[in-house]
Computed example of a mutant assay.
Amino acid sequence: MIFPEYCVTMARYNAWQNTQLRAAFDVLPDAELRRDRKGFFGSLLGTANHLLWGDMMWMSRFDGGARPEGGIADSVDLQPTAAAWAGERYRVDARILHWADKLRAIDLKGDLTWYSGAMGRDMAKPLDLCILHFFNHQTHHRGQIHAMLTAAGAKAPVTDLAFMPDEGPWL
């Protein structure tokens, strides 16, 4: 269903988008980042934290590395400040890029098995479907952040994949 090149492109897109979000968050006061904007995860920072938590959780399944503490309900409080979020976001984006850069086509085959706290049971799904979900989940929640930034009167970043620069730096 997917190829390593897809994963690299989406990892670069993720890093590009998060670089823009860090810049957008830098110009907003802390109170604006924490204001409940009626998003599924409440605030800009809460949604950004949930997305970071989800990326860390999926990467732990993909690369066997560290996973975040807590469950989905705790995800909104993963990092206490925008600065702490930005630092961890940078590290996780580097982890995603490194993982994607070393993928081979054979690495994308087979099933992924894990325990899902959200579903309360063991899961098994095709790995390529899980990777598609991983990148789609990022895009979905960044879309929510984009809408909240716009509603806050802030300048929202360019999100069109077709406008991603051809060259990095991706972080």
Rank of each mutant, 00 (worst) to 15 (best):
D128C: 11
L112H: 08
L28V: 02
A82N: 08
P68C: 08
F163P: 01
K102G: 14
P4Y: 08
Q79E: 15
G143V: 01
A162C: 03
T47L: 07
S43D: 04
T19G: 13
V27H: 06
V27T: 11
R12C: 13
A100C: 10
S116H: 09
R34S: 12
G143I: 04
F135A: 01
D122A: 13
I131D: 02
P126N: 06
L45M: 06
G54N: 05
F62A: 13
T9K: 10
M57A: 14
P169T: 10
G110E: 14
S75P: 15
K109I: 07
G120A: 09
Q20A: 07
L127S: 12
D63Y: 13
G70A: 12
W170T: 00
D77L: 11
A82S: 15
L129C: 06
L127G: 12
E32K: 10
D30W: 11
D166V: 06
A147H: 02
C7K: 00
S60P: 12
D122G: 12
R95S: 09
R34N: 13
Q144L: 00
M123K: 12
M1Y: 07
C7S: 14
A156L: 03
R22F: 07
E167Y: 03
K155Y: 01
S116Q: 04
T47D: 09
R121D: 09
L45F: 08
F41S: 08
A94H: 13
L108F: 12
I72Q: 13
P80Q: 09
E88C: 05
R89W: 03
C130S: 15
W170S: 07
W58S: 01
